[in-house]
Simulated assay, not measured.
Amino acid sequence: MFDRSVLADHQSDFLSRFWQKKPLLIRNAFPGGLDYVSGDELAGLASQEGIESRLVIEHGPKAWETRHGPFEEDVWGSLPTQKWSILVQAVDRLLPEVSLLRDRFRFLPNWRVDDIMISYAVDQGGVGPHTDNYDVFLIQGQGRRRWEIGDRALVNPELEPGLDMKILKHFEAAESFVLEPGDMLYLPPGFAHNGVAQGESVTYSVGFRAPHQKEMLQSFVQFCSQFDEGEIFYTDQTLPETREPGLILPGELQRLRELMLAGLQDEKLFMRWIGGFLTEPRSFHEARDKKVSEKTLRAGLKKGRAVQRAEGARLAFYTVGEKLHFAAEGECFVLDPSLTELVALLCREQSYRAEDLLAHSEKLGFAELLCHLWNQSYVRWSDEE
């Protein structure tokens, strides 16, 4: 295991030696730990509608029982003194201070960041030995947690049958260590790991998206089904004179396959779809009831009011030839290329000075874009409650 005090000072080394290759333990990455959320506050979030949460009890009515929120307040008093955990997803979309943690991982692509999950565990609490199909940074916020990890990425690991959780049937630890407040552990996809709280523990998990093939195919086909133009039908102008009527000939099978592949290889449709797919959030920010006008927006900027990105808002951009594609929270827009510097700024920072935005105010599509982001609640005034 390789220790580093500050990951940001060694980004090149991390990307070349560790990213998706092997684990990395980083001592004191966040000096003093993180105290944004206590166990009681996390339980409060897990009791709210619209927030994805789980309660994992190692020895409930059955082993590794998993319950999904929202939870009634009286559930917490009925739990044992040991071996249970609360997990709340996407806390970065709920709390501004947690959202700012994403800045520490800005050297990785925006579209790869999934969410920041926070877990609270009582003594000996955990979720059992398991693997993840994505990269994750585990930050010890408060308390202590012992981690055991395997020596290699597992492919198709065998799981214990009949459990709510995906618990490994066979787990052999190659290394074991205790994370103190502020320590961070990076794990690539597939590495088996098991975390057990040593007393009360709060852990922040910064997870990274790894879209899988079937998910992408399903989303792309659904996207394509919205459009009627350019439909291509199967043709077979030359048929054999004699054949078994029930037989599908090899040439027909090949033409059918090629027809499907041609749809998947439609570059224009792919580019219209991919940005929205990669920025689609776990949960959506509610659009504003009262819309802002271009005049009001410009007036606020001219008064020097700074703008803030919504907590956890997912933004990305890419270019195709001379076209600029900007994706925000599952939407994708084709913009004038003159706005490239603006959308790069929007994607790079979480807050924006008025003068930096006004520098682009005369460019084609500036006001329309900013108004749309505003009215969808993707951005707001920094001094707005």
Rank of each mutant, 00 (worst) to 15 (best):
G195T: 08
Q198G: 05
Q198W: 04
G199I: 04
G199V: 06
G199Q: 05
S201P: 03
V202A: 03
T203Q: 06
Y204T: 12
S205K: 08
S205R: 03
V206G: 10
V206R: 08
G207L: 00
A210K: 11
A210T: 10
H212Y: 14
H212W: 14
H212P: 02
H212Q: 12
K214P: 04
E215I: 00
Q218N: 13
S219D: 05
S219M: 08
V221R: 01
F223Q: 00
F223L: 01
C224G: 07
S225Y: 00
S225M: 10
S225D: 09
G230P: 11
F233G: 13
Y234R: 11
Y234T: 06
Y234N: 06
T235M: 06
T235V: 10
D236M: 00
D236L: 08
T238C: 01
L239I: 11
L239Y: 10
L239A: 00
P240H: 02
P240K: 02
E241W: 09
T242H: 12
T242Y: 12
R243L: 12
R243E: 11
R243S: 11
E244L: 14
P245R: 03
P245F: 04
P245W: 02
L247T: 09
L247Y: 13
I248R: 09
L249Y: 10
P250N: 03
G251H: 09
E252V: 07
E252I: 08
L256I: 10
R257Q: 13
L259I: 04
L261D: 13
A262E: 09
G263Y: 00
D266H: 07
E267Q: 15
E267D: 15
K268A: 11
K268L: 04
L269S: 05
M271R: 13
M271V: 06
M271S: 03
R272Q: 15
R272W: 07
W273D: 00
W273A: 01
W273E: 04
I274C: 14
I274M: 06
G275I: 07
G276P: 00
T279F: 13
E280G: 06
R282M: 07
R282D: 13
S283C: 03
S283D: 00
H285A: 08
R288H: 05
D289L: 15
K290T: 05
S293R: 07
E294C: 06
R298A: 14
R298I: 15
A299W: 01
A299D: 15
A299T: 10
K303W: 01
A306S: 14
A306N: 14
V307H: 07
Q308C: 06
Q308W: 02
Q308L: 08
Q308V: 01
R309E: 02
A310T: 11
E311C: 14
E311K: 03
E311M: 15
R314Y: 06
A316S: 10
A316E: 14
F317W: 06
F317Q: 08
